[in-house]
Design a protein around this nucleic acid. Sequence first.
DNA 1: CGAATTTTGGACTGGCCAATACAGAACAGG
DNA 2: CCTGTTCTGTATTGGCCAGTCCAAAATTCG
Lengths: 199, 199
Amino acid sequence: MGRPRQFDERQAVAAACQAFWAKGYEATSTQDLCEATGLGRSSVYNTFTSKDHLFRRALAHYIDTMTARQVALLEEEGSSGLERIRALFAMLLEGEMENRELGRAAGCFTVNTLTEPVSETDPEVARLLAKDLERRLGSFRAVIEEGQRDGSIGSSRDSAGLAWYLSSVIAGMRIASQAGADRTALEQIMATGADALGR
Amino acid sequence: MGRPRQFDERQAVAAACQAFWAKGYEATSTQDLCEATGLGRSSVYNTFTSKDHLFRRALAHYIDTMTARQVALLEEEGSSGLERIRALFAMLLEGEMENRELGRAAGCFTVNTLTEPVSETDPEVARLLAKDLERRLGSFRAVIEEGQRDGSIGSSRDSAGLAWYLSSVIAGMRIASQAGADRTALEQIMATGADALGR
DNA sequence: CGAATTTTGGACTGGCCAATACAGAACAGG
DNA sequence: CCTGTTCTGTATTGGCCAGTCCAAAATTCG
């Protein structure tokens, strides 16, 4: 009963996600959020309680969508460990270029958030980021070990360390993208990043 | 003539740099800057005109100190190209751990700034970042080519691409540090990063 | 000592910030 | 059609923001 919502909550979260992704937590005002979502102030606060709460929802949404897609790609069977990692690289690169063409936010929302104070001051945000990192590292580690077994990854380094390395290379690529690297440079970063695994 | 300053301008810039480094442009208030520098509002505005101007000074200070030190290390003679890169990695890692122990800002001020809107909205900031990146890439490229000549770097990839890769690995390591990676993880990232150059 | 000049501290300003209050709108059930 | 309930638009709140103003302080030069 009661008056029905005139908007889709998930869609609003997705719009807020884009806004926060583009400008970060601090620089995004509640006014920006109203404009991005198309909602009035009352609807925003009635639905999401506060800017902090909406930010957490937006970050969780980003993580759910992006990390899930990436982990799924790494778990696909039918190709070697290294091939799957290369496929992930290609996907990330494509996503990066696509966002650029659409004039959307560059880089990675979670990486950007890590460099903001909110990642330390808000425990819930810290928890989301830590949990996502753990999940990604676990996924990386699994595919690396597969690669070491199937021979596509010649490096005999500790798989946990290589997972950290992989995570760093990806974060670094996104920073490079924000710094203005062109497609060729990004491709070279990814290709060289894979070299370290081959041996 | 006139009343003499009761503070050292360079010292004030250094203090402001620490504040901006720790919290970023957006989240650092002018009040924070007064407390960090120990100056009153009037002195800050009389000396530095505005928050934007002080931020540019702080960023320029960081770049001058940090990049100069790193470039100098890479230009030191008496060791192979790869050895110099490893020395740079060691220095960065040491600096990262030191900052952590002193409870200071983690990560890299320029990397953090790249993920903030100010890096796009303020043309002067954009110029500082672009110029620094160019300088770093040039320095990386030079030492990589030396390494390719002296045989320490076996990778036959394009030196400009490898320079981008190096820059990415370093940025990625700093993100990993902010994400909570321990010393061992950072060491593994750097070591694996060097593997890609060896061949 | 006095005039000119600069820095300094503290009070102050308009504006934007996140968040709230409230009245009316839009439904469901009876 | 009426009542209860939820949503929505507008006006408003107190607070912090960057930046200004001004009078007092501290110097140099004459």
